[in-house]
Amino acid sequence: MAGIGKVIFRIMIAIIVILVLLIALIIGIGIAGSKITIAVTGVYTVGRISNDVILGCTFIPDTTQTNNIQWEKVGTSGVVYKYENGKSLLNDQNAAFKGRASLFLGEIINGNASLKLTQVKLSDAGTYRCIITNSKGTGDDTLTFKVGGYTSVSVSSPSNDTLRCSSSYWYPKPNVTWVRDSGANITNVTIKTSFPPALNNLTDVTTELSGAQLDVQYSCLIHTELAQAVGVSMLTEFGLQTTSELTVFNCTDPLAATYLSVWALLLCLLLGSTHH
């Protein structure tokens, strides 16, 4: 009997241990479940060399507690920027970002963790991670930051049948295209394009079309994967008419943006010509 009693006692102890473990597991799951993953959204960004830029990052804030923010650049040591317990902690900041990175401190409570970078360099391009931690939990997102050079285009007419498009400070070296009217092929013209070097590995662009006809619209497109400058021009008996636009491809479909910008410029020029 004593042996049976010991067996029953051991079984009961095992059952109790299992129950305790199950309860602990349930409690652990409950505690873990109270910590949610914060929704964080980073924004694809294109920056221009030597300009300032904002790398966008938004999140769901805790308006009653501190929201900690950490920015990192993938593949580099140290942090880009760190904000913790209401203070900026920059002891571990990567040397490349010292004095150039900042947050909009007054906007953190509204869920704005965007990072401002001043005097953008080519070396700043890369993948960045925005990490948010507060009483609600932790979340992060990555964004791609691309850097280039681009400026708007100016259009002139150095002779009666010649159109010239000029634009400065491009990187990488852009492609140049001329189109007629709504994209029709150009014939019986001569096109010459040059790329004079500029400072900081940038390049200027000058392209000329000779043999332009009166009252015909011509468009020069100076473009890279990051931006496009479009100049639309038309020689008339009243003189040269021009309009231009610079489009930066801060979107997922740069080709669509290209067509829209060209059509908008063509329409603008056409409406302007009807006023004579």
Rank of each mutant, 00 (worst) to 15 (best):
Q119K: 15
V120Q: 04
G86N: 08
T207H: 09
S114C: 04
V176R: 03
C57K: 05
G148N: 05
S233T: 06
R100M: 11
V79K: 06
I186S: 06
A24M: 10
G183K: 02
G99E: 10
N91Y: 11
P174Y: 07
N188V: 11
T144D: 08
W71C: 10
V74H: 07
I54W: 01
F238M: 01
D141F: 00
K192E: 10
S114Y: 02
K35T: 11
I38V: 14
V232A: 11
I23C: 14
A113G: 08
V46W: 02
K73I: 00
F104D: 08
Y169S: 13
I16M: 13
L221V: 06
A39F: 10
W178A: 04
V216C: 04
G211A: 04
Q70G: 12
N112P: 04
I8T: 00
K35F: 15
N201T: 15
F195Y: 15
K192R: 13
K82T: 09
E225M: 07
S114N: 08
Y218I: 00
K136R: 11
S261V: 15
N91F: 11
T133C: 00
Q119P: 08
E245G: 12
G99F: 06
T187R: 13
T58P: 06
G183I: 05
K98A: 15
K146P: 03
T190I: 10
K121S: 09
C268N: 15
V248D: 01
T127D: 09
L235W: 00
V7M: 11
F238S: 03
I29D: 03
G30H: 05
V74K: 10
L22R: 13
F195I: 08
A184M: 08
G149I: 04
A101R: 01
R164C: 03
I18A: 15
I108W: 03
N200T: 09
V7N: 08
I4N: 01
H275Y: 14
T206P: 05
A198M: 11
P158Q: 03
I132E: 05
S88Y: 07
Y169C: 06
S157Y: 02
V205F: 02
T142Q: 03
V80F: 08
L214G: 08
S194M: 06
L55M: 07
S233N: 02
S77M: 06
G28V: 06
S219D: 04
D62W: 08
A101S: 09
E208K: 13
V46S: 00
